[in-house]
Amino acid sequence: MSESPTGSLTATTVTIAGHDGDEIEAYLARPAGDGSRGGVVVIHHMPGYDRATKEITRRFAELGYDALCPNLYSREAPGAAPDDAAAVARANGGVPDARLVGDVAGAAAYLRALPTANGRVGVIGYCSGGRQSVLAVCHLDLDAAVDCYGAFVTGTVPEGVPLKITNLVDQLPGLRAPLLGLFGAEDTHPSPRQVAELGRILTDHGKDFEFHSYEDAGHGFFAVNRPNYNVAAANDGWERIAAFFGKHLGS
């Protein structure tokens, strides 16, 4: 990483070319300075493109990366408040997988075109975004991926879940980059059994991965604005993310 010695950063809203060339909104955060550095695509959670996710994006800039969070709900609810946009997206069955891959591809291309880019781009996602991070790195040439408690990477999607998705078991053999997984042992989606299944599949296919589970943490333990926030798990998780991206995306 080429962290700014002053800790200064800039953050702004930009327009990028997403799936099929659609123009979508995205939040870009960059450290000060013109040194060469990696990029991080941040995939927001199901509640949407909200303040907490933008804070996470700025944190990656503070760590020394160009970070970009595409608004996956730009098409369904342009300009809407995050909760309203998320409700519309849920009613439509969520973000289609093919569109997600296209939007992440557009975000990665945007980052790689920045004058500070070193060519390496990672992806990270939380909750639904954790599954989508794994999905993206099964189809795109990225350099690293982080799955923060992504549900339905393995296992069966229960009836009544308002998302038109399947698990990713048949796509996991195509995983193209190292994967870091961070999970809560008290979580049910994904459950420890589903995390273990994911580990077995990746091991069987010779993939590069590392998983960490936190005994006293449930789903959403990184979410500082939600009851499940777990200080110890989140702090350790951030240290592991910084080390992982430093290894695979560093300048």
Rank of each mutant, 00 (worst) to 15 (best):
H205E: 06
R240I: 15
D204I: 01
A234M: 02
D208S: 15
Y229H: 14
N228R: 13
H212Q: 14
K207Q: 10
E210L: 13
P227Q: 02
N225I: 08
H219L: 05
G218W: 06
D236S: 12
D216C: 03
A232P: 07
E239F: 12
K207S: 11
T203S: 11
P227G: 14
Y214T: 04
E210K: 08
Y229P: 07
E239A: 13
A223D: 10
N228Y: 11
V224C: 05
A232K: 04
T203Y: 07
H219I: 15
A223V: 01
N225E: 11
N230E: 03
D216W: 03
S213D: 11
N235R: 07
N225V: 09
F222Y: 01
A233R: 07
G206W: 10
F209Q: 05
D236G: 06
D236L: 14
A234D: 09
Y214S: 08
V231R: 15
E239C: 12
D216F: 03
D208L: 00
R226H: 05
G220K: 04
W238M: 12
A217N: 01
A233G: 03
A233V: 00
D204Y: 04
N235A: 15
A223G: 02
H205K: 07
Y229C: 10
V224F: 12
H212D: 08
F211T: 15
G237Y: 04
D204G: 10
H205D: 12
R226G: 03
N235P: 00
V231G: 09
D236C: 03
H212E: 13
P227C: 05
P227Y: 12
R226C: 00
G206H: 09
D236A: 12
N230D: 01
Y229F: 14
E239R: 15
E239V: 11
N228Q: 15
T203K: 10
R240F: 13
G237V: 01
E210D: 10
